[in-house]
């Protein structure tokens, strides 16, 4: 590894403050190796999954179940799993739950956070304490299950959204953001005779786009990724979202179970189910990759880090 490469990664002498010693070469090589190692450990598994999904079944069989770089990439597996069948159906269900759930969560979080952020709201303290208390005693699985059951929500998609609709952490972040808005805005609106609802929709919401975006993305990722509530609350596996279907593949080991493979059976590709499994994994990852840069954008703005500290 040449010194120039290391300088490119770690910065040259001119970028270092004058008082800082020039690190020894061994230290600098160690740093670069450590960083490359960490990134490799994360990127390689993802690369193998994508490559395997793009390889032809024959190539996957030849490679013993995995491919690092497909020689003749094909989208055949994606065509198969996305042309109807279990994966396609569960994908549509997942999208529905994610969109609907995120809207419900944002509505509940914004309205409550706004009310709890207004200083003159007489019930602010008791309600805030009531909300924060749940942080100490999160509801456990069985009692939650009983609540869902007694409300008659079993086997409905409400069961996947309502019980996890508001996250206390997100609520606190949102409230903190609302409180940090300059008080003059509120005063000015009051003088103009605007009611709370007008203040919220006309003034607070437009100013809070970044925090709403990032918290909405957090909710969306949560809904997209969850599989346990589907297994717990939905009896019929044909109603399951993508992650729950993928879960049966994972827990049943390498064999792609019969209930997930109706898209595959007519292609005769069961001899190499690995590429289908991996294509399903990729389908589950892609939405995350698509929204990830947007989430990233807000980390740098410090929306989160500021809130985490408080």
């Amino acid at each position: 590894m040449s010194s120039a490469v290391i300088d490119r990664v770690l910065g040259t002498a001119e970028e270092r403050p004058a008082w800082q010693e020039r690190p020894r070469l061994a230290t600098r090589i160690g740093k670069v190796v450590a960083l490359l190692g960490v990134c490799t450990l994360i990127v390689v598994p993802l690369l193998v999954v994508v490559s395997t999904s793009l390889a032809s079944p024959d190539e996957v069989t030849e490679g013993g179940g995995w491919v690092l770089w497909p020689t003749e990439p094909t989208l055949q597996t994606y065509q198969d799993i996305l042309s109807g069948g279990t994966i396609t159906r569960s994908l549509v269900i997942s999208v529905g739950i994610t969109v609907g759930g995120t809207l419900i969560s944002l509505f509940g979080t914004i309205t409550l956070a706004y009310a709890l952020s207004r200083d003159h709201f007489s019930l602010r303290r008791p309600l805030l304490l009531m909300v924060l208390f749940t942080f100490l005693f999160p509801p456990s699985m069985l009692p939650s299950y009983l609540v869902v059951k007694n409300l008659g929500l079993l086997d409905t998609y409400w069961a996947l959204t309502l019980p996890v609709a508001i996250n206390v952490f997100n609520l606190v972040i949102m409230r903190g953001f609302f409180q940090a808005l300059p008080g003059e805005l509120y005063d000015a609106a009051r003088i103009d005779g605007a009611g709370e609802l007008t203040v919220l929709t006309r003034i607070v919401l437009p100013l809070s786009k970044p925090v709403i975006a990032v918290i909405g993305l957090f909710y969306a990722v949560g809904y997209w990724n969850s599989f346990f509530h589907a297994i717990l609350y939905l009896n019929d596996s044909s109603d399951w979202p993508l992650q729950a279907v993928l879960q049966t593949v994972v827990t049943q080991g390498a064999a792609l179970g019969g209930n997930t493979s109706d898209a595959l059976s007519d292609t005769g590709a069961l001899a190499a189910p690995q590429s289908y499994q991996m294509a399903t994994v990729v389908v589950a990852i892609v939405p995350i990759l698509v929204i990830y840069p947007f989430i990233q954008k807000y980390f740098t703005k410090g929306v989160l880090t500021g809130a985490i500290k408080s």
Binding site: V38, C39, I42, V43, P45, L46, V48, V49, T52, G64, G65, W66, V221, W224, N225, S226, F227, Q243, L246, Q247, V249, V250, G253, A254, Q274, Q277, M278, V281, A284, I285, I288, L289, Y292, I295, Q296, F299
Partner: peptide, 24 residues
């Protein structure tokens, strides 16, 4: 790169580990 895995579901993480360490 290092933040990304946090946003992957456990199902996917386990599937990745299987694809790396499993028999196939």
């Amino acid at each position: 790169v290092v933040y990304l895995p946090h946003f992957l579901s456990w199902v996917i993480v386990v599937a990745l580990f299987q694809q790396m360490l499993g028999p196939t």
